[in-house]
């Protein structure tokens, strides 16, 4: 009888130990799961909050922004009746965008100034993700802040002129905030307006949204995101067809 009792007691102890082991495993597992879930939740929350904060803090939409927020219009309001809409997708850190800009940039802008085309500049900032910096967004902010003082186009060109030799090196704040404005002749009150806009990143929401909308449209039409890309009336223009800049208007008209 005592033998039997001891056996039963031992069994009960063993069961209790097993139960304890199980509780320990479940307890630690559940704790880890809860901590990870909370961390993910906080991460998503912080992400949303920072978006909200950005859109609340004196957000500025540049004067030449199109009403849909997708682009900056170059020489708005002068396009002739039925002039084709040309959209230029570019990223300030992309070397081939610089190439397109130096070869064809002035042809595009003069066609816009003469009203032969309606020209929209669509700034992308997706290279920031690939290159691991934030220079595309900052360059975009600087350019749109320059629009505040009526210097968008020249500023845009000067950014490309200052593009670092090595892709990924990025633009410095010094270049965007001080030396480029000086080169394009932003001075006095205009300089104060510009620098305050840049320092507050006032156009950041506009720039990042413009980039997001650009990615969406590029994916929809070309099935990929790559810059530079040119749309004529919403259709992709093959850049391989680009020849001498003097033939640009004819090429656009053929593809309109």
């Amino acid at each position: 009888m005592t033998q039997n009792n001891r056996e039963r007691l031992r069994q009960a102890q063993a069961d209790a130990a097993k139960q304890q082991r199980l509780n320990r495993i479940i307890g630690v597992g559940a704790a880890i799961l809860v901590v990870v879930l909370i961390a993910v939740f906080i991460g998503v929350l912080v992400q949303n909050q920072s978006h909200q904060a950005a859109s609340n803090s004196s957000a500025v939409t540049p004067p030449n922004a199109t009403s849909d927020g997708k682009a900056i219009a170059i020489s708005p309001g002068v396009a002739k009746q039925g002039a084709p809409l040309v959209e230029l997708f570019f990223d300030y850190q992309c070397p081939y965008c610089k190439l397109l800009e130096t070869t064809y940039g002035s042809s595009f802008t003069s066609l816009a100034a003469s009203g032969d085309i309606e020209l929209h500049y669509r700034t992308m900032s997706f290279l920031d993700a690939s290159l691991g910096n934030d220079a595309s967004v900052r360059a975009g902010i600087a350019a749109t802040c320059a629009d505040e003082v009526g210097k968008y186009s020249v500023f845009h060109n000067e950014i490309y002129a200052e593009q670092p030799e090595t892709e990924g090196q990025g633009y410095t704040d010094d270049a965007l905030r001080d030396s480029i404005p000086a080169k394009v002749g932003i001075t006095g009150d205009d300089l104060t307006t510009f620098q305050s806009c840049y320092d507050k990143q006032a156009t950041k929401t506009f720039v990042t949204t413009m980039g997001d909308l650009g990615v969406q449209d590029l994916q929809a039409v070309t099935k990929q995101v790559s810059t530079p890309t040119v749309f004529v009336n919403g259709k992709n223009l093959s850049l391989n067809d680009l020849g001498d800049p003097s033939g640009l208007l004819d090429l656009i008209k053929q593809n309109a």
């Binding site: 990223d91 992309c94 070397p95 081939y96 965008c97 997706f126 290279l127 690939s130 892709e167 099935k223 990929q224 995101v225 790559s226 810059t227 530079p228 890309t229 850049l239 391989n240």
Partner: peptide, 13 residues
């Protein structure tokens, strides 16, 4: 496979 150049994202002739 889709030939997307993700690191540069650039049109590369």
């Amino acid at each position: 496979a889709r030939g997307i150049n993700i690191d540069c994202g650039c049109f590369s002739p």
